[in-house]
Every structure is written in C-alpha cells, then in structure tokens.
Design a binder for these strands. Structure first.
Lengths: 219, 219
DNA sequence: ACAGGCATGATACGGATGTACCAAAAGAAG
DNA sequence: CTTCTTTTGGTACATCCGTATCATGCCTGT
C-alpha cells in the first residue's frame, strides 16, 4: 500500500471547503472550481478524490450530519432529567451561536436540493429527523412517568410538534424574521407550558449550557 | 397607447410558467429558456416583458404571495369563531392538497434563494409572515375573551410557535417524512390542546372545509 | 396610404460549469 | 537503476446560462 498522503484527511479537507461555501454563499455557488480554490487544491484533485460532484455533495452531507450529531451529544452532556435533555436537544438546533447557524444554514441549502433532485440523498437526509423524533418521544414518556408531563398527552405527536416548531423557528431566524434569542424564548415558553405547572425553573441556565463556548463540558 | 396585446396577461402567463417550473423542477431549473418554452413563447419575449431575470423572479414571487393570500381568504371563508379562523389559517398552509403542495414547494424553492442572495426579496418575502403572525395573535386574543383559551397565555408567543410548527410540519411533508394528513392530525392535536378543555368538537369538518374541492364556498 | 413605434423572432457573445483526457512527478518494489 | 502505481497538474470540450444585438412584422394614428 503506497499511502503517500492520507486519503481520508484530504477528503475531509475538501468536503469541509464545500460546506464552508455552502454556508456562506449557498450550495449553488459551490462549484467544483470554487471548492478547489477554497480548499487550496487544484480542480483535478477534487475530481480525483470525489469522482463526481454528486459524490462530493453526499460525502459533505454525511459529514454535516455527523457534526450536528456531535453537537447534540455535546449539548446533552451530562443532562439526566428528561426535561433537561429535551431542552438541550431542541435548543441546540436553533441557530443561536456561530456553529448552529452554520449547520442550520447549510442544512437549509441542502434542503431545496433534496426536494427537486430525486437523487440519492432522499433517504439519507430524512433518516436523522425520524430517529431524533423517536428519541424525543422517549424522553417525553420518561417525563410522564416522573409526573412532569400530563400522562394523557400523546408523546409521539408532541415530539413531532416540538421538532417541527424548532425547525420552523430556525427557518424564521435564518430568514432574518427574528433573532436567535427570540426564537429561544419562544421555545422556552412552550416548554414551560408543556412541563409541569410552569413553576419557573432554571430557564436561562438550561437553555445555554455554556456561558460563551459551545462546548459545555470543556471548561 | 397601442395596447396590441394585454401586457399584464402576458406577464401573468410567463410568471406562472416560472412558478410551474419552480414547483416541479425547482427554481434552479427555471432558466429563461425553460420558462419561455414552458410558457410557449420565445426567449426574446420573456426578455421583453421582464427585462432581467431578477425582475421575473420577483414578479413571480409577488404573484405566489397573492395566490397564497387568496387561498387563505378562501379557507377562512365565512368562519366567524376565532378557533375556526385559526384552524383555517394554519391548516390551509399545510401541503395537503395539490394547490397547497404547489404553493409550499414553490415557496421552499424561493427560500434558499433568499437566504444566500442578499438581493431585493429579503423584505418582500419576510413581510407576509410577520403580518400573518399579528393577525393570528389577534384571533387568539379574541379566543381568550371568549374563554376558549387560558387568559394567562401569551398570544404573541403562542401565535409565533404555532406558525413555526406549521412551517416545520410543511417542510417535513415536502421532505417525504410524513404525509399531509399526518401533519394535519398533529396540528389538530395541538389546537385541541390549546383551545378549551379539549371537548372533541367538529374535527374532521373544520380541518377540511370542502369535501373534495379546495374552494369551500363554491359548491 | 404612410410613417412610427410597439411587439416578436433569430442569433450571437462572453462566461461558467461538470467532466474527460494527456502527461508528468514521486515514492515503493524488484 | 528500473519499473510500476499512486498522485498531481494543465487544459480541452461540450453545454448551458443571462443578456445584447440586429432585423422584421404588424397595429394604430393621421
């Protein structure tokens, strides 16, 4: 094996250049040449590591998904109480800091691509939401057993509604309709409405697990 | 004035061809030539009536907005009770029938365009949601005075949350994650949760004002 | 009937994009 | 040192895009 250079590392470098462009200028500006320039390599290199553009697009999408998942796990952190977990999951998706804004914007860029290109990524992109919804529903069920949430509530439907709301809130933030903090406040209000008799608990703490950095456990 | 042909009619014809393409193949496939072919006119004509592509895009967006507003007014129809009005507004946005699917898809196509093109339509596209949110909040306030909704509830935040949820639900339907009926059911559940003590009222009727046609008052 | 201007048609131009092709370094293996 | 495979560079090609240009029809006012 003549592994002159680290293939995986090169692929990561190029794919992240694609994601960077998709974030700042949109996916339609992410041409092969633009990606090559952004990554500091030649056009031929991009072609070499990702034979076709679709391959590059898919690989970058997978990496983006991994980044989001990593962020969620980081935000959940050592949260144990169902309410804290639910709050972490939902609020870490909202575009409030630089990282979430980047991820959300890039996902939005992929969104319309998936809509009109019946190509491969259809199932690839629709998978995460559905498993996330299941996880959220499980947390809500746990909260029901603790008595924090009305036991008569349908956890599946509630989870779907919350996820959709956060998604919509994210869109409105990206569209400049409101700020990330306002979206966060709207989410917090509805969570207060959902959990318990709204005895104002640690609102400001549970919604931003870390003061300034995005990594709560790295202090 | 030598109005040989009806300018407005021609513009409408071309703009609607653009919308049709944006719906079926996405906005990035809506080239000037494709629009011309779809509208059955020559490329030169498209250029003649809309000097630049941006002009065409903006005009079509305005028409799309008018179509959505018309649909909403049709769905609201003779509804008088705040709950019926709120239900009509929210459910008519969900992509359940052909028309709403078309409108929602086309709006989604414009969405990512607005995100990365800091051009004109920024304020043009962000205007409708904010006035709609105000109208919705007003209806909720009216429902509070009737006693249908808990008076302590923040109508502004609730309206924003509902609108965001419907938006997110629409995205999930477009993404093939769930059907329009499922999304409608999720919305209905949350409206039941919001209004009154959930005495199961006319669910199936208030959510689809007309059996098969989309125009409730035209029977 | 005759001009004038609105309306339309055909085509050209410069640029960008995805991909393909040809060839040269460059390290490993014999 | 030679030989082979991996890796890289430069460039060409066909296509599509938005827009501009030139030319022609055809209605309308006089």
């Amino acid at each position: 094996m003549t592994a002159k250079v680290d293939h995986e590392e090169r692929r990561r470098q190029i794919a992240e250049a694609l994601l960077r462009i998709a974030d700042t200028e949109g996916l339609q500006s992410a041409s092969m040449r633009a990606v090559a320039t952004e990554a500091g390599v030649s056009l031929r290199l991009v072609q070499y590591y990702f034979t076709t553009k679709e391959g590059l697009l898919l690989d970058a999408l997978a990496r983006l998904g991994a980044q989001l998942q990593a962020r969620m796990e980081r935000w959940i952190g050592e949260a144990r109480a169902p309410r804290d977990v639910v709050t972490a999951i939902l609020s870490c998706i909202l575009p409030t800091d630089a990282e979430s804004r980047r991820i959300t914007r890039t996902y939005a860029a992929y969104y319309t691509l998936v809509l009109n290109d019946p190509a491969v990524p259809a199932k690839q992109a629709a998978q995460p939401p559905v498993v996330l919804e299941g996880f959220l529903a499980k947390q809500l069920r746990a909260a029901q057993e603790t008595g924090e949430i009305d036991a008569r509530r349908d956890t599946g439907v509630t989870a779907a509604g919350l996820l959709a709301m956060v998604n919509g809130l994210g869109s409105s933030v990206l569209g400049g309709q409101r700020s990330g903090e306002e979206a966060l406040a709207i989410l917090a209000y509805h969570l207060d409405e959902l959990f318990g008799p709204s005895r104002s608990r640690s609102r400001s703490r549970s919604l931003s697990p870390s003061p300034s950095r995005s990594s709560p456990s790295a202090d």
